[in-house]
Amino acid sequence: RQAVAILRQLHEITGRYSLVFAGANPERPMSENTINKALRLAGYEGRQTGHGFRHLLSTELNGRGYNKDWIERQLAHGDSDEIRGTYNHAAYVEQRREMMQAWADSIDAVCAGANVVAIKRKA
């Protein structure tokens, strides 16, 4: 639900383009470097990258006990059976939808102050 709401808001800004996250050339996608630069400017240099969010998600969902096949599919990792992987883009779609909704709900809960644990940085 949260992702759909965000995409609807973005549509007001980017709706005239074919891509939601267009680059400087609106016919091409935004570069991963754009995300990494934003993270650097926000003070996360050396601690987080755009691609690192995929590692974070995988680690957290595996830690919560979700089926590893659902997680791999959600991360768009291929099927070891290349033919099956080519034709089955909807693998585990209902389970993945529920898993990602639970993830979004947990992010909302943290943002609202639930289960927040302070992490002390090393000096």
Rank of each mutant, 00 (worst) to 15 (best):
W70P: 02
S18A: 14
G43Y: 07
R54V: 06
P26A: 05
R40L: 08
N67V: 06
T49Q: 08
L10T: 03
R16Y: 07
L61I: 07
G85N: 05
D69S: 14
Y92D: 05
E98H: 11
N36G: 01
S31H: 08
P26L: 00
G63D: 13
Y17P: 05
G65H: 05
S58F: 01
A102D: 14
G85H: 01
A24M: 07
I13V: 14
A118V: 09
Q48T: 13
M99L: 05
K68F: 11
I13R: 10
R8E: 15
T86C: 08
S31M: 03
Y17I: 02
A3E: 09
S18Q: 12
S80H: 13
D79G: 00
N115Y: 08
C111V: 09
I71Y: 13
S18P: 01
I119C: 07
I83L: 10
V110E: 12
R40H: 14
S18V: 06
T14E: 08
L75P: 01
V4K: 13
M100K: 07
A38R: 15
A114E: 15
S18T: 11
A3N: 03
R40M: 09
A90P: 00
Y87F: 04
N33Q: 09
L7Q: 08
L10K: 06
E98I: 09
E32A: 13
G52W: 08
R64A: 15
Y92V: 04
N115S: 12
V4M: 10
Y44G: 01
Q101F: 04
G50L: 04
G65Q: 06
G65P: 04
S58T: 13
Y87R: 00
R96I: 02
G63H: 10
G23E: 03
M99D: 05
D79E: 04
G23N: 06
C111R: 15
M100R: 06
G50T: 07
Y44V: 00
T14D: 07
K37G: 07
A112G: 00
F21M: 02
D79I: 00
G63V: 10
R47E: 13
V110D: 11
V93I: 11
N25C: 05
A118P: 05
A38L: 13
N36H: 05
A24L: 10
W103K: 03
D69K: 15
C111Q: 13
G85E: 04
A5C: 00
R40W: 14
A91D: 12
Y92T: 02
G85S: 00
P29E: 09
Q2W: 11
E98K: 12
A104W: 06
N62K: 14
A104F: 10
Q95E: 14
A76R: 06
H11A: 10
I6P: 00
L56S: 15
Q2T: 09
T86K: 05
A90K: 05
R96P: 02
V4T: 14
Q2V: 03
K37I: 12
G78P: 01
I119W: 11
I35A: 10
L75W: 02
I119A: 08
S58D: 13
E72G: 15
I6G: 02
V4E: 15
